[in-house]
């Protein structure tokens, strides 16, 4: 059996990257001769979520419940996964390559004293069990052998598209109340601040997305970009550098650990085009890169480009749009 950790959004749905991981697991299960895919999640899933997971071919949904799961603890989540895996005898334990997914599976791997592969993009073969994953910031791929059982790995965000199965699974709900040691609850979240309003729905459905990266320069460098967003009735999407530095909120991030967008036109400004960013924007129908560096990967992989400083190009474009509109 293959066991997949599924992350549930505050709205109660399975996050896209987790559905991608389940899709990956299903392909792997087929290679393995049709072994079942079970998922583990935290909290009680509603009928809609159970239905979605069944449509992804999931056999059982193991729901971790009890006071240990009231707030996040990587060790407690791992304890639950390990308990389910021990009882069910899974040979593979997987998650999405999100912060939570990587953290919880690292706990699982440490507890079981087996290796873990982070950010896997493809599966190589069963014997030996080989995966390919991203290293060196995505500039290099590593083929890695997972000789021990369970094979523990996370799937890089948007490495495969999330797709329901041809044949749905039973999606049988199993309520679990694992025993969690006190020591596993020492490092747990004690407070969560008012979540940022999540507008990523608008970002992922926008016809035009204006992207902004380190080239914006600072938190004050977004005025012209936001004006262009306004003029094109689009959305703003940013690189991880921009969210890490606190210039813009995380829900605007595009990429492997952010949203996947598929607009008619993406206009990345001052974004180099790292593979993790590309994972979120490669489905754009056209890409107009604005960048000072003609050799930036975003420029060479774009359909169109302007070479120059975004703080000069974008205001000029805004002015030209206003001029033509009269």
């Amino acid at each position: 059996m293959i066991l997949v950790l599924v992350e549930v959004s505050p709205a109660g749905g399975a996050v896209e990257t987790s559905r991608e991981a389940v899709t990956f697991a299903r392909d792997l299960a087929a290679v393995g001769g049709g072994v079942p895919v079970d998922v583990v999640l935290v909290g009680a899933p509603d009928d809609a979520l159970a239905g979605v997971l069944a449509s992804y071919g999931v056999r059982r949904v193991h729901a971790l419940t009890g006071p240990a799961y009231d707030s996040f603890s990587g060790a407690a989540w791992a304890a639950g996964l390990v308990e389910v895996r021990e009882r069910a005898g899974s040979v593979v334990v997987m998650a999405a390559g999100t912060p939570r997914g990587n953290e919880v599976l690292a706990h699982v791997a440490a507890r079981l004293a087996v290796p873990m592969a982070a950010n896997v993009v493809s599966f190589g073969g069963l014997s030996p069990f080989t995966v390919t994953r991203q290293v060196v910031g995505g500039a290099v791929l590593e083929e890695m052998r997972l000789a021990e059982r369970p094979a523990v790995f996370t799937v890089a965000g948007h490495a495969v598209p999330a797709a329901p199965a041809d044949v749905p699974g039973a999606g049988e709900l199993v309520v679990e109340t694992p025993t969690v040691a006190e020591a596993d609850l020492v490092a747990r979240v004690v407070s969560t601040e008012e979540p940022e309003p999540d507008l990523s729905g608008a970002l992922t459905s926008a016809r035009v997305v204006v992207g902004a990266g380190r080239g914006a320069g600072s938190a004050d460098g977004f005025d012209d970009l936001l004006e262009l967003v306004e003029l094109l009735d689009g959305s703003l999407g940013v690189s991880r550098v921009v969210t890490s530095l606190g210039w813009r909120p995380h829900h605007e991030q595009v990429g492997q650990t952010g949203s996947r967008i598929a607009p008619e036109l993406y206009i990345p400004c001052g974004i180099s085009g790292a593979i993790q960013h590309w994972a979120g924007c490669s489905s754009a129908k056209a890409i107009l890169a604005i960048n000072t560096d003609p050799d930036a990967p975003m420029v060479t992989r774009a359909t169109h480009a302007v070479i120059g400083d975004l703080h000069e190009v974008v205001p000029a474009v805004n002015a030209e749009i206003r001029r033509r509109r009269g």
């Binding site: 290796p115 592969a117 080989t130 390919t132 290293v135 500039a139 290099v140 791929l141 590593e142 083929e143 890695m144 052998r145 997972l146 000789a147 593979i275 107009l288 890169a289 003609p294 420029v299 060479t300 992989r301 774009a302 359909t303 169109h304 480009a305 302007v306 070479i307 120059g308 400083d309 000069e312 190009v313 205001p315 000029a316 474009v317 002015a319 030209e320």
Partner: peptide
Amino acid sequence: SRVRLVLPPPSPSTVEVLGEGAAAAPAV
């Protein structure tokens, strides 16, 4: 547990450069 490292295949560029700097605005 490394077998080996490989470089991702280079992606051929088909980019159309519209111009440089502010002067490219009409083409954009």
